[in-house]
Design a protein around this nucleic acid. Sequence first.
DNA 1: CCATCTTATGCTCATGGAGAGTATAAATGG
DNA 2: CCATTTATACTCTCCATGAGCATAAGATGG
Lengths: 319, 319
Amino acid sequence: MSKVNKRPQTTVTALDAITADLVAVLVAVTDGDPRIMTIEHEAALPSGPFQFGHRSLQMGLRAWVEAQTGHPLGYVEQLYTFADRGRSGGPDAPHRISISYLGLTREEEGREGADAQWSSWYDYFPWEDHRDGPPAILAKIIAPKLKAWARAADEPALQKTRWRRAAITFGLDGREWNEELALQRYELLYEAALIPESVRDTGGSEAIVPGRAMTSDHRRILATGIARLRAKIKYRPVVFELMPDEFTLLQLQRSVEALAGRLVHKQNFRRLIEQQELVEETGAMAPDTIGRPAKLFRFRQGVLAERAVVGTKLPLSRS
Amino acid sequence: MSKVNKRPQTTVTALDAITADLVAVLVAVTDGDPRIMTIEHEAALPSGPFQFGHRSLQMGLRAWVEAQTGHPLGYVEQLYTFADRGRSGGPDAPHRISISYLGLTREEEGREGADAQWSSWYDYFPWEDHRDGPPAILAKIIAPKLKAWARAADEPALQKTRWRRAAITFGLDGREWNEELALQRYELLYEAALIPESVRDTGGSEAIVPGRAMTSDHRRILATGIARLRAKIKYRPVVFELMPDEFTLLQLQRSVEALAGRLVHKQNFRRLIEQQELVEETGAMAPDTIGRPAKLFRFRQGVLAERAVVGTKLPLSRS
DNA sequence: CCATCTTATGCTCATGGAGAGTATAAATGG
DNA sequence: CCATTTATACTCTCCATGAGCATAAGATGG
């Protein structure tokens, strides 16, 4: 290992050959509910190996998702790549890496495959939905269990560090809730052995925090996707990938709130949307409304050309 | 392909086996110059295949970088994963993917390997340095050539789209320069066949825009790293990974400017740094100064614990 | 027809952060 | 003493943002 200064050329040793899985976090928002496409009785994300026939990673992903769910893939962006060893297979198992993607679509009727299904992402992360205020499990279950986990550390310094980390990520001790920390929260719960995945991977006591688990690392990947999407809607016009062609401003707002898991100030929301000229009126009004009828809008495709690169803002108020 | 509803289990077909390369964009800032570690006579980034013996992707990367450059890897974060086919090897060549990382360190004396060397990243992207105003090549070479490329499109609509894209990414036609678009700029130049890589990959006329090329996709990966770092310094305290233990505020500012490729307002910079309590005084003064002596500061390690997750701000003024 | 409910929409106001400029202090070298 | 260089302290304006008030426009029930 000491004198390797030359970059090795293309020699595919059998030993160094690996397999790559493509995994999709496919999101849609329906009736103010953020949904993700699942297979295997809601326990796994659409996925499959990157194969010889695939022309590119994205093409491979599209092939798998369409085969498994019957749903075409629209907007796609890469999330993260990680290697899985020790968790799946023994120490001698060959390397297996997962390349994960975030996809955005609209839910369409009767297009699911046999085992494919849309599920609310809050079924997997019940602590992430703060639209009606902080969920009860936070104060009742998560906070005390994390406190216990912090106390269980050997050294006082570590105890303090642990608790501070918990307080920051979950907005405890009077701190603000930050919806973008979805991944950090999941990882913390995993470390603290409070969810089924920790028990399964490391063996340990029983899991305690509610929320549906998934196959292998899929819930972790889902958390990554949620965090990414929550961050991205604030500065890029990606919400529109999830909207129907025509919508009211309230519907748009509800979608944003569904993703962010928190409410926004209605008037300020509209102000921001309008002053950025993200949408234009269709001229028609929304049918079947309850109160005062609302104008219908459509996304101004122009902004993709004008600003795809640059940025957009959404108000996701703090405090 | 039609009725595959079940996710395939772990079967490593020989055909679907692939190779994964680990590639590092290792950055340091020395004397106000942003440098990257290179090998092969400055034509490649440190890299090597992910091997059976590697415990994780990051461990594999660290092993390769240390073997090739003698430099230990500090802060590391993943950049992007992509598959390379058609470019390297024929259409029947097995899949080969690259997993790229961004690493931040301090340049240390005499630690380079035989073929390893630090190079200024502006050698590869001369159009990215706007510290002394927009570089001459922009107006003299890039803008006219991009205009010609836009005009060369068949349809008027495409001509317009092309030129708008060029204007947005390069800040032409009176638009603002956005330093975060480094990757988009590189990709545009590639598409417009103005750089050696395009000529090499697709065959075409001679390359025109100055700037050193690299092996395979390495310059593209470098652009990805630059863009990521430029975006990240604005909201995370990553600059400190690149600073010595003690530094003056001006040195800190110069480092930020080196990375961003643009100048910042001195007073505002200090105001922001101080009000966020990112640094603390060491008590000592900087030696060998020219004008009025400056206080030495050190990074407050505390903020990593307090705010690692949350965020920091740097002033990178627009206009 | 009126009261009430629901949603849409317009407007105002206070606060704070960011960009930019002015002024002064502390050192060095002639 | 003066020019030069860097450090440091203030100030001022503009605008984005969070938040609240008020009104409009429809439906529904008595």
